[in-house]
Amino acid sequence: MLKKIYRGIRLLPKRGKEPYVSFSKILGFYPYNITLYDQALLHKSSSIKLKDGRWINNERLEFLGDAILDAIVADIVFKEFEYKKEGFLTNMRSKIVQRETLNKLALEIGIDKLIKTSTRNMTPNTHMYGNALEALIGAIYLDQGYRAAKRFVLERLIREHLNIETVAEQEANYKSRLIEWSQKQKISVSFDLVDSFVDDNNTPIFKTAVIILGEQAGIGTGYSKKESQQKAAKEAFNKLQRNTNFRNHIFELHEEQQKLQSETYLTSEEEESSSEPENDSKEL
Rank of each mutant, 00 (worst) to 15 (best):
T166Q: 01
T166E: 07
T166S: 03
V167W: 07
V167Y: 08
V167C: 00
V167S: 08
V167D: 04
A168K: 12
A168D: 07
A168Q: 07
E169W: 13
E171I: 14
A172E: 02
N173H: 12
N173S: 11
K175V: 14
K175A: 01
S176V: 04
S176P: 04
R177G: 09
L178K: 00
I179H: 04
I179Q: 07
E180K: 10
E180M: 06
E180F: 00
W181P: 10
S182T: 13
Q183C: 10
K184D: 12
K184F: 15
K184A: 13
Q185W: 12
K186N: 15
I187N: 03
I187E: 01
I187C: 00
I187G: 02
S188A: 15
S188D: 10
V189E: 01
V189F: 05
S190I: 13
F191C: 08
F191M: 07
L193K: 13
L193D: 00
D195G: 03
D195Y: 04
S196P: 03
S196L: 04
S196T: 06
S196M: 06
S196K: 13
F197R: 12
F197V: 11
V198R: 10
V198G: 11
D199S: 11
D199L: 09
D199P: 08
D199R: 07
D200C: 06
D200G: 01
N201H: 13
N201K: 15
N202Q: 14
N202W: 14
N202M: 15
N202E: 13
P204G: 02
P204L: 08
P204Y: 08
I205P: 03
I205M: 08
K207P: 10
K207S: 13
T208D: 01
T208V: 15
A209K: 15
V210G: 02
I211H: 06
I211Q: 05
I212L: 05
I212Q: 03
L213Q: 12
L213N: 08
G214P: 03
G214Y: 03
G214V: 09
G214E: 09
E215L: 15
Q216D: 00
Q216Y: 07
A217G: 07
G218A: 01
G220S: 01
G222V: 06
G222F: 02
G222M: 02
Y223E: 08
S224K: 02
K225W: 05
K225V: 14
K226F: 10
S228H: 05
Q229H: 04
Q230T: 03
Q230I: 01
K231T: 09
K231P: 12
A232D: 05
A232E: 05
A233H: 00
A233R: 11
K234N: 01
E235C: 06
E235G: 10
E235R: 15
E235D: 07
A236T: 11
A236W: 02
K239S: 05
K239T: 09
L240P: 09
L240V: 03
Q241V: 02
T244P: 06
T244G: 02
T244Q: 14
T244H: 13
N245L: 14
N245H: 13
F246G: 06
F246M: 01
R247E: 00
R247F: 13
R247D: 03
N248S: 14
N248M: 12
